[in-house]
C-alpha cells in the first residue's frame, strides 16, 4: 500500500505561553492538492515550518512518505519543496545562478531540461540574468516557486503563494500547480483566497487558534456545513429583527436595508418569504446563493464575530 505523502501526528508548538499549534493530526494522500486554511495567527505557517524543518517541533511527529522528519531529515527535505510566505531571496545572485545553487543544496545534480522547463513555464526566461534586487514582486514569487521545485520534490508546500500577486499571475500560478500535481506531485497549500482553495483542493483542513476545526473533502465540507443563503433587500430599513425570523438565522446588514438568512435543509425560500410577508416587511428584491467555503470558514473561525453581534 502506498504511504501517505504526509502524516502529522499530535504536532504541537508553543512560543512562551502561547500555544501556536495544539496537538494537530492529519494525513495527506499521495497525489492530493490539500488546502490548509485559517485566519492570520491560526498556526498554518508554524505547521508548515515544522514540516519543512524551519521550526523545531515541541512534540508530535511529521512523516513525509513514511520518513520521519527528525531522524531522516535529509530524506524528508529532499522529498519536500517549500515556498515560504515571505519573499526570501539572496540578492547576490541572478535567477539562473540561484536555481543551480539551490539544486546543489539538495544534493542533486543540475538537470538543465527541468530547470529550463521551470524557467519557461514560470515566465522567467527574459529575466534570467538579472539580480534579484531588480525583480518585481511577482517575478520574485515566480522565482520562489521555481526554487521550491528545482530538485523535483514529491511534496510541494506552498505557503500563501498568491499573496500580493495580480489576478493574471494568480491564474498562471494555479494552472502550473495543477499541471505539476497531474505529473504526480502532491501539493499542500495555504491561501487566503478561499474561492481558489475551493476550486483547487481535493480536501481542506481549517485551523483556528492552533487547532483543526474542520477536515474533509471540499465537497463534503460544503454539503455538511454549507447552507443556502437568502438576502432580502428591504423597502424600509429595519432597526431590530423580529423574533419570528429567528429560526432562519437572520443577520441585519447594510444599515438595516438588507437581511441575510441562512436556511437549513428543511427550510425553503418560500417558507421564508411567507414569514417575512406575514410580518408586513416590504421586500424590494431577493437574492439566493449556496454558501461557499468562505462562509464555512467564517462560521468555523468566528471571523465574522462583528456581524454576529447583529444577529439574533
Amino acid at each position: 500500500m502506498q504511504k501517505p505523502a504526509l502524516t502529522i501526528s499530535h504536532l504541537a508548538k508553543s512560543y512562551g505561553s502561547t500555544d501556536a499549534v495544539k496537538s494537530i493530526s492529519f494525513e495527506i494522500e499521495t497525489g492530493e492538492i490539500f488546502g490548509l486554511l485559517g485566519p492570520n495567527g491560526a498556526g498554518k505557517s508554524t505547521t508548515i515550518n515544522m514540516i519543512s524543518g524551519v521550526t523545531r517541533i515541541d512534540s508530535g511527529a511529521v512523516e513525509v512518505f513514511g520518513y520521519d522528519n527528525q531522524t531522516d531529515y535529509r530524506m524528508t527535505r529532499c522529498l519536500c519543496g517549500v515556498m515560504h510566505q515571505e519573499i526570501v531571496i539572496d540578492n547576490f545572485f541572478t535567477i539562473d545562478k540561484a536555481l543551480r545553487l539551490h539544486a546543489g543544496y539538495y544534493g542533486v545534480a543540475d538537470d538543465p531540461e527541468w530547470r529550463n522547463m521551470l524557467i519557461d513555464r514560470l515566465g522567467l526566461r527574459e529575466h534570467l540574468h538579472k539580480v534579484m534586487l531588480k525583480l518585481s514582486g511577482g517575478l520574485k514569487r515566480r522565482f520562489m516557486i521555481a526554487k521550491a521545485l528545482i530538485h523535483k520534490p514529491k511534496l510541494l508546500i506552498l505557503d500563501e503563494p498568491t499573496a500580493g500577486v495580480d489576478v493574471e499571475l494568480r491564474l498562471t500560478l494555479w494552472d502550473f500547480v495543477r499541471e505539476i500535481n497531474r505529473q504526480g506531485t502532491t501539493v499542500l497549500l495555504t491561501t487566503h483566497y478561499l474561492e481558489e482553495a475551493e476550486q483547487m483542493c481535493n480536501r481542506v483542513a481549517i485551523m483556528n487558534h492552533g487547532q483543526l476545526v474542520a477536515l474533509d473533502t471540499t465537497v463534503a465540507l460544503l454539503k455538511k456545513l454549507g447552507s443556502r443563503m437568502v438576502t432580502t433587500h428591504l423597502a424600509t430599513p429595519l432597526q431590530d429583527l423580529p423574533p419570528e425570523l429567528k429560526s432562519f438565522k437572520p443577520r441585519l446588514k447594510n444599515g438595516g436595508n438588507d437581511i441575510t438568512f441562512s436556511l437549513t435543509e428543511n427550510q425553503t425560500s418560500v417558507d421564508l418569504l411567507d414569514t417575512v410577508r406575514g410580518l408586513d416587511i416590504a421586500v424590494t428584491d431577493v437574492e439566493t446563493r449556496q454558501s461557499n467555503l468562505e462562509d464555512i470558514f467564517l462560521r468555523l473561525t468566528g471571523s465574522n464575530d462583528k456581524e454576529r453581534t447583529n444577529a439574533l
Binding site: S52, Y73, D90
Partner: peptide
C-alpha cells in the same frame, strides 16, 4: 542571512 530571512533557504535543504 538571518537578518534578511534567506537562511530558511538553507534550513529546508538537506545541508
Amino acid at each position: 542571512s538571518r537578518y534578511l530571512g534567506n537562511i530558511v533557504d538553507l534550513l529546508v535543504t538537506p545541508v
